[in-house]
Amino acid sequence: MPEPILRLEAVGKHFGGVVVLEDVSFDVRAGSRHALIGPNGAGKTTLFNVISGVFPPDEGRVLLDGLDLAGVPSRRRIGMGMARSFQNIRLMPHLSVVENVMLGQHARPGLLRKLKPVGLLPKSRERDEALEVLDRFGLDAYRGQVVANLPYGIRKKIEVVRALMAEPRLLLLDEPAAGLNSTETAALRDFLMEVSARGVTLLVVEHDMPFVNSLCEHVTVMNFGRRIYDGPAAGAREDEAVLDAYLGTHHKKGASDAA
């Protein structure tokens, strides 16, 4: 069994008296497409914030390639191979599309590279690389535009492309399909399949179940800050606790009890 790329060990987080995460443990296998699902308020985004280092866990450990991330500042994690997108699009509103994407290259090593006047040179490896990726994902037409003026679906994709620019091994995506229409969702799935085929591990928070089922082979389900299921995607559909969380405690007894 290969070493998991990401391991959560009994992670807990509370804000004041409110317990948001409690004893959350699971592994994300390298190269897998792993979904993290659960009703609103289950603690999924909080867990993403703990993993990416926005705030530390109050209990437990987060391990990347077996290395405890406690004390590793959030800005160093992208250089260790972990990049993420955000539930509400967080592109830089005053930067152009290609500049936003090139920001994803920032974590790459090399001080000299940071002093290269990329914006003044007619051609550079950094820009070419960003343009090539934009082209590959059909975003070429928008490259010079300021992102604030672009449609939602396009911005959503650009955010994923930006995260990819960091050449991550683990990509955390927070509701990538939210707000997309069915055509865009299908295109996003194909896009993520291609990303996965290149060896990038995906951990995806998502509400769109058909999207999850068509993309991910492994699912972790959370409810009220706890992990209630962790296993193959197919198994989640029959799991008692998962059905309870989504459909309510009396889903089996139905209307006869209520009457």
Binding site: E99, M102, H106, K114, L115, V118, G119
Partner: peptide
């Protein structure tokens, strides 16, 4: 025009 300048503008935005 450098990646440092880009980082400055990124800090400005978010």
């Amino acid at each position: 025009s450098t990646p440092i300048g880009l980082a400055m503008r990124a800090v400005h935005d978010d």
